[in-house]
Computed example of a mutant assay.
Amino acid sequence: MGANKKAPLSVKSLKAGRPPTARPPKSISRKTTKRLINNHHQLEKRRLQAVARNDKAAETAIAAEIEALGGLARYQQASLQGQHRDRGGDSSRVLMQWLGIDDDNKPATAPLEAAKPSFLSSAPLRMLEVGALSIDNACSASGCFHMERIDLNSQGPGIMQQDFLQRPRPKSNSERFDIISLSLVLNYVPQHSDRGEMLLRCLDFLHEPGMVSAEGSDSQNASVPATDEAIQKYFPSVFMVLPEPCVANSRYLNEEKLADMMTALGFDLLESKASQRLVYYLWVRQRPAPRFIPRFPKKELRSGSTRNNFSIVLQGT
């Protein structure tokens, strides 16, 4: 009897022949996503506290715990998963609805329909998206802005790896923006004083009140007065998104204090919205940078064992 010959294995596709390490990461459940993000925030907070105490042993141990969870890359994967449309994510959709752009990125009847030639066609307005995870969100897809995206750990082309707190200050108006997006960014900054510094730095990177980016943005004086009422109403501005408990259940921050801080910096609240998990704000710059900014310390506003410790501290001038 002749030796049995095995039939050659057939590979159905290149994808089927790839090793497991080449497979795309599995989707993370909503429950796992929330747990990963919360655990990462808590560990990062403890690590920073250890740094402040100069406790090297504790810092090393906590850093190892963060890495065991997958580090910053795993945190960003969870955050990006949470932005998927089927999870109700992509907070920039709220901003676009406020600006009169519907979910299909088509102009709605108000308020920017009148500004369609300058706003939608030539798109001279510039947006800085801090903490960007994707180049495909609603703001990017709308074609309304010249986008510049930064993040501490870039997820790919189109997102510059940069810390906003370390970003060089603008040398000219051509390096300034009409809107800065701080969507789920402040709550990730570990130090409460750095959160205040981030808000203060927005004044450097935004155009002056009543001014917008000039067409082309290649000259030293690349800003012009906003002549359209719709543009004047919404720009320059800061789009801010926070977890709802940061303002609704914090010992040290509520909406009144947040509004007082932003008012002191020259902003007025134009739009706001609260969902079950998030709060959204659009702060429009109405006044030049003040010569004096009062100090907003970490001060208890609510008591109770169920409160969280989120705070924003403005050191003042």
Rank of each mutant, 00 (worst) to 15 (best):
P111N: 03
L282R: 02
L269T: 02
A22Y: 07
V94N: 00
R126E: 00
A3C: 10
D218Y: 06
G266R: 02
T109H: 14
D103R: 13
V130M: 04
S142G: 04
G216L: 00
L184V: 02
I62A: 02
S122Q: 13
S237A: 12
D86K: 14
D178I: 10
S217N: 06
D90V: 07
G156Y: 01
M160H: 07
N38E: 07
L14F: 09
S79W: 00
N39F: 08
N39H: 12
G156H: 01
G71K: 10
A63I: 11
E244R: 12
M96L: 13
D194Q: 04
R53V: 00
Y75R: 12
V284P: 00
L9S: 14
N39I: 11
C246S: 08
R126F: 00
P124N: 10
N308E: 02
Q42P: 14
L206F: 14
S92T: 15
D55A: 05
R18C: 04
A68T: 08
K106F: 15
V247E: 01
I180L: 00
S134W: 04
E229Y: 09
K299H: 05
L133R: 03
A110M: 11
L72H: 02
R302D: 07
P209K: 06
Q166G: 06
E215F: 12
H84P: 04
E271M: 15
N249V: 05
A61Y: 08
F239C: 01
Q276P: 07
N173A: 08
S91V: 01
S29C: 15
G304F: 05
S172E: 04
W98M: 02
E256Q: 14
P243C: 13
A289M: 07
R167W: 14
P20V: 13
R30D: 13
A264N: 14
A226E: 09
A138T: 06
A230P: 04
E244Y: 04
R302I: 03
Q76T: 03
S92D: 06
Q81H: 13
C246I: 08
D204L: 13
V241M: 00
H192A: 10
P297H: 06
G82M: 10
K31Q: 09
Y280L: 09
A108G: 15
I101D: 05
V51T: 14
T33P: 10
V185L: 12
I179F: 06
I135Q: 07
D136N: 05
W283R: 01
M1W: 04
H41W: 00
A289T: 08
S183W: 02
S275D: 11
K26S: 09
Q83M: 11
E256L: 10
A57R: 15
T306E: 10
V313L: 05
L200T: 15
A78F: 06
D103K: 07
G316K: 15
P19I: 11
Y281E: 00
T263G: 14
P111S: 03
A22C: 05
S303M: 02
P117S: 13
T21W: 09
H41Y: 03
P111K: 02
R169W: 15
N249W: 03
R201K: 14
L203K: 13
A50E: 08
G316I: 13
V212A: 09
D268F: 15
L48T: 02
L282C: 04
R287I: 03
P111Y: 01
P124T: 11
P290S: 10
G70R: 08
L14W: 08
G71F: 08
I28R: 00
A264G: 15
N187S: 12
T227V: 07
